[in-house]
Nucleic acid binder design. Structure first.
Lengths: 192, 192
DNA sequence: CAAAACCGACCAACCAGTCGGTTTGTAAAT
DNA sequence: ATTTACAAACCGACTGGTTGGTCGGTTTTG
């Protein structure tokens, strides 16, 4: 049952990263949290970095699967957008506590070539799929036929920014509300 | 000339953080880069964290000063917005290389209470000032009179997101172009 | 019984911070 | 102008503690 054990280790590691921060997280802590021994953990993963990369991959796969689920449906573009927001909102509720860890992963990705390449691919894929969504909306005549690359990049940037600010300071406004506000303004525009 | 020496240490530290990443940056490296000795550096700063916090403060002060410069002028709101984009674009050129470090600071701020509080204050201030800008635009009759808090939060999120994505993967599109694309879509809106 | 999975004591490297001592600036006393 | 006095600024060898990773041996599994 190698896969189960690996998952057990990854879950433990994510818990430690979330609790202690990536910089302060030690292998000893991950080992202890996993319930295994040091040798056991190192039998499954060659290094601390290997664990980080594995967690990162799971996170990206999950996000991409979520997007695919929404886009696969046979509905109008605005409905897809609504559903995407709802799904992300629901999904994020499961890992709000891990969001600082996400930030640290991003920081790490700017240094680690392996991580950087994976992240670049992930975003390229994600961007293309979102582009298709906006192209659909334009074809349906509900959205402006702007260059889809610009629109998609702006949309993703807006969402990432909302996440970032929420992570830095969740204070009173819940994440779902922030996302909806942002989307509304992006759709309607500011100009009179 | 205590201030000069402190600045010398902070500049060296930022260089090391940018080069090695915050996690891997050691005091020995900062000491070496600064040209001083360990005792010398520790005479000016009590700890590694104190150095980080000082750098963070400088960064925030700079950003706020830039915003104040723009807002203080006696011109229409859209012109202020244009100018803000230009100024940020020019300013960012000076520290593109340090942007991964910025990401790491953000990650750190979610753990360190002192940093977190400073960052919260900084964003609250920044938000209020941006709100005033959108209120001005609404009063001038060029922008929709939406709730300024929502508009300002969305605007900041959009910009932070653009920065984030650019840091993660600068590939071909320059930052200034990305900012302008994003602003255009936000102003005009997507809906037909 | 062989390979896979696991154990945990051990280690070499490293790191933030300390401290006793030295140099430098500077202001008052001679 | 020179000495004295003292604190600010600086030096760098040293340390106590920690960390990622290893390895020879043990248990479990098929």
């Amino acid at each position: 049952m190698s896969d189960d054990r690996q998952q057990q280790i990854l879950s433990a590691a994510l818990r430690v990263f979330t609790r202690d921060g990536f910089a302060k997280a030690t292998m000893n802590a991950i080992v202890k949290e996993s319930g295994l021994s040091k040798g056991g953990v190192y039998w499954h993963f060659d290094s601390k970095d290997a664990i980080v990369i594995a967690i990162f991959n799971q996170f990206m796969s999950g996000q991409e699967a979520l997007l695919d689920t929404v886009l696969a449906q046979n509905i109008a573009a605005p409905a897809k957008l609504d559903q995407l927001v709802s799904l992300i909102e629901a999904d994020v509720a499961n890992f709000v506590d891990d969001m600082p860890a996400t930030l640290e992963f991003y920081a790490l990705a700017t240094r680690n070539p392996t991580l950087k390449q994976q992240l670049t691919h992930f975003y390229a894929d994600y961007l293309h799929k979102i582009e298709a969504l906006f192209a659909q909306g334009a074809a349906e005549g509900v959205w402006r036929p702007l260059p889809t690359a610009h629109t998609a990049a702006t949309f993703i940037a807006l969402f990432e920014g909302v996440f970032l600010l929420y992570t830095l300071d969740p204070h009173d406004t819940p994440l779902g509300q922030r996302m909806k506000n942002a989307i509304n303004i992006l759709l309607t525009g500011l100009n009179l």
